[in-house]
Design a protein around this nucleic acid. Structure first.
Length: 431
RNA sequence: GCGGCUGUGGCGAAGAGGUCAACGCACCGGAUUGUGGCUCCGGCAUUCGAGGGUUCAAAUCCCUUCAGUCGCCCCA
């Protein structure tokens, strides 16, 4: 299917990222929340916004057999907020509440580098505090996540839209500024002018247009209170040595954002034109708009596939743990005994492969190479008689005769020394 | 939704109208039926994404279609 792909060769890298997610969650004391992959279409229309591109042309919508209008989730926040309300999580004593999620999202777009129709996001949401420290915690969490993955080539872009009043002020100022230039702006911008003036700032076509270059800045329309909020966010970020760029054009493509919005962009140029690794911000009215009690909140989400592209560019390639043993049989008698022997060894934790094709001796040796087994165990008539296996250490090329019942222990003893070199550990090679 | 590029064996890749579709890697068999990694010998695409057309003749030209990829848009 267009825009989908199978995760086969990339599984180790996926696992490394997933492991980092769960570790990060512990560091920030986040609780995992898993919500459905589809929701009532209405939910996304009301939260993300009817006029946004995501809802306007990118959702997977369908009617189920009961005539309900269903949408495959295009983002994670709406579902989490719905769940927060339905499960009355706001009624719990502890506040703020911090959640994280990880899973597939779906958007009907033309695929390209860093963009597929089914893609995975990891995100966090913090409910119940309007304090600037939450805005900061979100950003710090995202930055820490990248650090954990040893990704250092990124830039944090930040802006503030302010609360309801500030947003209205700004839209008014923006429309006044744009109105005289409407004729020279692209068709999209003209449409946006009426539907969603904020989105004009995101236009890439008219990015050099004077009207946009000189557009008023959202932060200049902030109320005194909202301005202070933004200043505190920046101050705390600075005190944490988190470099950030105030990007006056950053408005985000979802309608629910208020106050702080941010994006983290890859600067390694590993991603082509889809260079946003993470996006997020504050959404103080969303819970209320979806029927919950007034609850300020903030969150972000990462595009996992883009993270993987970055890791790939950094040549971060975790490897599978090597196979312990390839059990090779010579002769019909031995061939019959091999499965039982392998079974016993696996029960003892020895990762074991045997010939399943009926290969000759030479071919089995070749096969043992392909499996990259550390040891080759040879079983033939001679061994069967003595109740032993000829165990060959592929690292040294030496052979020794080991009794059946001692194989597991012998292997365990031998690999003890190089266990520290275990290359399944997520830490970067050579560090 | 729009635009560019690509599509030859498991992979990479020659081939630009004319007998059998190079080559490299991988794979399989043998030289060597209890020891692999080297070497040597042999095998491995009735077919060039699919369908149609032009032609005496098409992987090569034309049309259609599908797939992949990159970009625009938008975003993660």
């Amino acid at each position: 299917m267009k825009g989908t792909y199978d995760i086969v060769k990339d599984t180790p890298r996926f696992r490394a990222v997933e492991k980092a997610i769960h570790t990060l969650a512990r560091l920030f004391n986040l609780e995992e929340i898993r919500t459905p992959h589809f929701e009532a279409s209405e939910l996304f229309h009301r939260s993300v916004g009817e006029e946004t591109d995501i809802v306007g042309k990118e959702t997977y919508d369908f009617f189920d057999r009961g005539g309900r209008k269903i949408t495959l989730r295009p983002e994670g926040t709406a579902g989490v907020v719905r769940s927060y309300i339905e499960n009355k999580l706001h009624a719990e004593a502890k506040n703020p509440q911090k959640y994280y999620y990880y899973g597939s999202m779906f958007r009907y777009e033309r695929p390209q580098k860093g963009r597929t129709r089914e893609f995975r996001q990891f995100g966090i949401e913090i409910f119940g505090s309007k304090d600037p420290s939450v805005d900061v915690e979100i950003i710090a969490c995202a930055v820490l996540f990248l650090r954990m993955l040893k990704i250092t080539d990124f830039a944090v872009h930040i802006n503030s839209l302010g609360g309801e009043e500030s947003k209205k002020n700004y839209e008014k100022a923006l429309k006044e500024h744009i109105r005289p230039h409407l004729e020279t702006l692209c068709a999209d911008c003209n449409r946006r002018f009426e539907k969603n003036p904020l989105r004009i700032l995101d236009c890439k076509k008219d990015t050099e247009h004077d009207a946009l270059q000189n557009a008023p800045h959202p932060i200049d329309a902030l109320t005194e209170e909202d301005r202070e909020h933004f200043e505190s966010v920046r101050e705390i970020l600075q005190s944490m040595d988190i470099d950030h760029i105030v990007d006056h054009r950053l408005v985000r493509g979802l309608d629910y954002y208020t106050h702080t919005v941010f994006e983290i962009k890859d600067t390694l140029e590993a991603l082509g034109s889809q260079d946003t690794l993470c996006g997020g911000g504050r959404y103080d009215y969303l819970v209320e708009n979806l029927g919950g009690p007034p609850t300020p909140a903030a969150g972000f989400s990462f595009g996992i596939e883009r993270l993987l592209l970055t890791l790939e560019a950094l040549e971060f390639t975790p490897k599978r743990a090597p196979l312990h043993l390839y059990l090779l049989s010579i002769g019909e008698k031995a061939k019959k005994k091999t499965p039982a022997l392998a079974h016993k060894l696996r029960l003892q934790g020895v990762t074991t492969e045997t010939d399943l094709v009926g290969r000759g001796i030479k071919a089995q040796f070749k096969q043992s190479e392909h499996t990259a087994a550390r040891f080759v165990g040879i079983v033939g008539d001679a061994e069967l008689e003595k109740g032993i296996v000829t165990l060959k250490d592929q690292n040294t090329g030496t052979e020794e005769e080991v009794a059946f019942e001692n194989i597991a222990a012998t292997i365990a003893e031998k690999i003890k020394q190089d266990r520290r070199d275990c290359d399944t550990c997520p830490e970067r090679k050579g560090e």
